[in-house]
Design a protein around this nucleic acid. Structure first.
Lengths: 155, 155
DNA sequence: GGTGAAACACGCCGATG
DNA sequence: CATCGGCGTGTTTCACC
């Protein structure tokens, strides 16, 4: 699907506020509200917009600690990798996981209630998986830039 | 604000689908739709729900590369830190940034159209800041677990 | 917790280039 | 023929009772 600059404007706006009505969008973007609605529907069908989500403040949910973890596996066979992925899928504290280049095999984004919880998490959940060789953690001290949407690459 | 298990259920549902109507929520959660609406409003006012956002697929927007970067600063004075934060705020490819414990000073989440773009980004934008000493990048090869909401800590 | 009015989304249709 | 803007209907939200 080829996106034009109106599509990008719509996407930028919906990334900031998914509840913005089509009529308000049509005041910012030189398109009728019908057209806005039609575009959004196409963007949804094409998978450009994959979901609408409520963004929560972790602190308000009692999740005071955010950490990034670099994991190395013990072995790199099909089986070990499948086990690892199944393992992390089942752990809700792991928000996302990526296979990465560099020293580690996987990069994890993890939340926990506090540092003791995080420690327990590493010891009893991560290192308890026998496919995991090592874990190196970085705890977030302060978020200095907050996610507010993907950039428009046409710059 | 103290959250009960109904609040958590509402939050879990809205993290997965922010467009779910109150009436449909009331079929899952044993609360009337009026009550659901009232709870949501309180959660918004308390800042537990901080935004409703459209989630986009980076690939569909022409952003094929995701990378994690560990940045060390040259100096650690007030001025250098302020300059750095202002710098990263102005760079849209940097999705978020955290001050972290460990070897690096800051952890960055970065997107780019492709590897050449990412390389240009590091050379001409990150290392061009004179407060930056070093940058160590990990490129995401494959996302093995996708973010789908914060966990319920009451487990 | 239920009910009403207002706002909203979305499909239909004629008009236009 | 594809695309656009306006209208009407069903749905959702929100304030009041």
């Amino acid at each position: 699907m080829q996106l034009d600059r109106f599509d990008y404007q719509i996407l930028q706006a919906l990334q900031k506020d998914a509840r913005m009505p089509h009529q308000k969008l049509s005041q910012i973007i030189p398109l009728s509200s019908s057209q806005i609605g039609r575009r959004i529907q196409q963007l949804e069908e094409a998978g450009v917009i994959s979901a609408y989500r409520a963004e929560l403040q972790p602190e308000a949910m009692g999740l005071g600690v955010l950490a990034f973890m670099n994991v190395c596996l013990e072995r790199h066979g099909e089986k070990a990798i499948k086990d690892f992925i199944q393992g992390i899928d089942a752990i809700p504290e792991i928000l996302e996981a990526h296979a990465v280049t560099g020293d580690a095999d996987y990069a994890l984004r993890v939340v926990a209630a506090d540092l003791p919880s995080l420690s327990r998490f590493v010891m009893h959940k991560l290192l308890a998986m026998d496919c995991v060789r090592s874990v190196k953690s970085s705890v977030a001290l302060e978020q200095v830039k907050r996610f507010s949407g993907l950039p428009n690459p046409a710059h």
